[in-house]
Design a binder for these strands. Structure first.
Lengths: 323, 323
DNA sequence: TTGTAGGCGTTATCAG
DNA sequence: CTGATAACGCCTACAA
């Protein structure tokens, strides 16, 4: 195993100079830096994480809390984790996952928390180490999310542009910020278009949205588009329409939200709002590492713009659009 | 921070005695052990992972390699990861995820690898640190999986018991061990029942199995059951049958394989073979930790029995069965 | 069975 | 700007 000392010997400097080249390069002359880098490269030096952690009184571990029922967790979480892990690895951090509401905080340098609901506010506020939330919130916690309002605007605007007469928002029956933001985007675009918003909310299960539409079928005449707050909901809407024998996308349009996995596995494939979840994960990781580095300093929030993915549950305007 | 030294002082023993109580309790008298445990408890002592790692020349890190295209990865991987992480955490290990075929092995104590194909054999065999595969293989690597043959037998036997006349196996178009095992289970039960096996293979996408069935619809008369090698495939089969306006489960039965997420999100809900993926993950983690502890000693393999989950894509025999 | 001394690889601190 | 020294908390090896 190559250590700092080996590199130091090779470069004819002290261990401290090597250490500084790594951690405080601005304190070292360019000349020495060059020498040291060369030596590190020749010897293929890999810093020893444990030693660093010990010396700095760190763990180099981040915990990822999933507060939702794991069975209802969206499949895109896998991508989120990949992104997080990527960012952490770059800084020699690694990951522990915590689910099932085991409130044991354990030993680590910081937390990424997802699926926070109002009721979690209290105990999260007690955590002393740095925390970043995945998912927007109104409690002042630092967070990362897609721009949910923009997502709602994107899909609504697109539905209107395709000439659907009635555009209904099918939301998730949760009083949470991300949901309100998507609805706000919908409402804003509707009002700008001088249309009356119409929102219905269901649990985030395909069978619930399916049931909702079956029961209220007569409320939705032909030429209606359903702008949904999740792909799960969109899938249920799609099934209900198919059951009625109506035509998708000519009579009815559907736009989902999430764009990972589920959208691909139905037929016709969902037009949806895609979030770059892996990227979001990366940003989460970086933000947390910064916060750790800065002794818990507030980081604010970061919103990533979502994209519209045009597929088979909405009409074509004509022209060639990507599938 | 409470250290070994603090505990030692409190218990009026040396640091080494405390260390021994933790790592080699058999070398310490019961009397002292009691004292030490009491002291640890009173002080809420938590061992410092970094220090331990440094002293033992370990990293306390395990890498998880995903060799499949991440976009085709099954949603159940999230549960697998939770299981792995749980096992690792118990032994103060943490996790790094690696995807996108970045062949950088990095620094860690061992690897869990999933999605290995024949072409990966070569480079995996070069890895010096302990490796456990998730997914059965014929190359002598230690692995953890469900009993795929048993899974194939379970679903085939159930289909036959429900009186479906023809029972067809819709497999995944991959020359891999897990697929062969599922097929073997199917074939064995068919032969025991003096029925002719009939196997068709498609890519593991719902649209592919759907297409297959659309094209070959006339081959499958009423009273056929499709035993599928994945829920994805089963979902496509279900859609194709519905398109034809045939009745599920009376005219046609469907049984999937995996039992996480996808089975719940279609309608009617899939009868399927469920794997306890989180448990599998836990076992993976434990097996790897053992292997690390035993300096790379061969661990063999561990198969977990899958379960049949009876839902709505197969007939009822009568009686009350869980949904 | 228990204790002592030394070292694991890194970084902070202080001196030059 | 660079170097020597002393931690960081634990474990191995050896001594008692």
């Amino acid at each position: 195993m190559v250590t700092l000392a080996d590199v130091a010997r090779r470069a004819n400097v002290s261990k401290m100079t090597v250490s500084r080249v790594i951690n405080h390069p601005e304190q070292v002359t360019d000349e020495l830096k060059k020498l040291v880098f060369a030596a590190m490269h020749e010897l293929d030096y890999r810093p020893n994480v444990a030693a660093k952690a010990l010396a700095k009184n760190r763990t180099q571990i981040v915990k990822f809390f999933i507060l939702e029922e794991i069975s209802t967790v969206e499949p895109y979480y896998m991508n989120l984790l990949l992104g997080i892990s990527l960012a952490l690895s770059r800084h020699q951090y690694s990951l522990q996952l915590v689910a099932n509401n085991s409130f044991d905080l354990g030993v680590c340098d910081g937390y990424i928390i997802t699926g926070m609901r109002k009721s979690d506010y209290e105990w999260i506020s007690r955590i002393e180490k740095p925390v970043i939330l995945f998912g927007e919130n109104l409690y002042g916690y630092d967070f990362v999310d897609t721009n949910n309002k923009k997502g709602g605007m994107l899909s609504t605007r697109y539905a209107l542009s395709l000439g659907y007469d009635k555009v209904v928002f099918v939301g998730i029956d949760l009083k949470e910020a991300f949901e309100y933001s998507r609805e706000r985007g919908y409402i804003q675009v509707m009002q700008e278009s001088l249309k009356e918003p119409e929102i219905v909310r269901v649990e985030n299960h395909s069978h619930k949205s399916q049931e909702m539409l079956q029961k209220n079928w007569e409320k939705y005449p032909k030429n209606t588009a359903f702008v949904c707050a999740s792909d799960r909901i969109a899938v249920g809407i799609e099934r209900a329409i198919q059951e009625k024998g109506a035509n998708i996308p000519d009579d009815y349009g559907i736009i989902g939200y999430d764009g990972i996995f589920l959208d691909q596995v139905v037929s016709p494939r969902l037009t949806t709002i895609r979030q770059d979840v892996a990227k979001l994960g990366e940003i989460c990781g970086e933000m947390l590492l910064n916060k750790i580095e800065q002794k818990g300093k507030k980081q604010g929030f970061k919103l990533l713009d979502p994209m519209l993915v045009k597929r088979e549950t909405t009409r074509r305007k004509g022209g060639s659009e990507k599938s």
